[in-house]
């Protein structure tokens, strides 16, 4: 099934302090409050105008820096469930998986699209279509895919401790 998404496009080495400032990490815990500060030091328009289903398209090393999970959850609470980047900070990549947010590694896309452009995503076929070009989504390892399919690590654990065999 193909879904269509509006893009927010950012550059290289956007760190977790930019995505969710450290000064809020121990003071905010309500999802809406966390979402309201998403990307505030990088793009003051984002939190006010983002809509559910929008995607982030970024350059190299998106989410480098601290291990704070709010840098993923702030975007998730803002309605983002797919992040496409040339590459990801490694803990950020893991945090995405664990939060059920799909991280897609695509080195070229950020040079092709601008904020406000649209792209098409076919999760089943594993493709992204943008500016009339098609990009393959790299497959994930079965362990990682199982966490995403469960909706994140927390849901996977919930199934495990309820005694369900997932799915």
């Amino acid at each position: 099934m193909t879904t269509h998404h509006r893009c927010w496009v950012y550059g290289d080495n956007v760190n977790t302090d930019m995505i969710f400032p450290g000064r809020h990490t121990y003071t905010l815990s309500v999802p809406e409050d966390i979402a309201a500060h998403a990307l505030e030091d990088l793009d003051t328009t984002f939190a006010a105008s983002v809509r559910p289903g929008d995607v982030i398209v970024a350059g190299w090393n998106w989410g480098c820096g601290s291990s704070r999970e709010q840098a993923v959850t702030a975007l998730k609470y803002a309605g983002i469930d797919v992040i496409i980047a040339a590459s990801f900070g490694r803990i950020y990549f893991r945090n995405c998986i664990n939060q059920g947010v799909l991280p897609i590694v695509c080195p070229e896309l950020h040079t092709l699209v601008n904020t406000g452009d649209r792209l098409a995503l076919d999760r089943r076929a594993g493709t992204i279509t943008a500016q009339e070009q098609i990009f393959a989504i790299p497959p994930l390892s079965p362990t990682v895919q199982a966490i995403l399919d469960a909706g994140g690590l927390l849901s996977l654990l919930q199934h495990r401790f309820k005694g369900d065999s997932y799915p």
């Binding site: 291990s67 999970e69 993923v72 803990i91 893991r94 945090n95 664990n98 939060q99 390892s141 362990t143 990682v144 994140g152 690590l153 927390l154 654990l157 495990r160 401790f161």
Partner: peptide
């Protein structure tokens, strides 16, 4: 190595985690 918060919760719960 560093891990995220949900992963630490999983480590508390199960004692193990996937690593590549």
């Amino acid at each position: 190595a560093g891990v995220g918060r949900t992963e630490m919760a999983a480590l508390w719960a199960t004692g193990e985690i996937w690593l590549r």
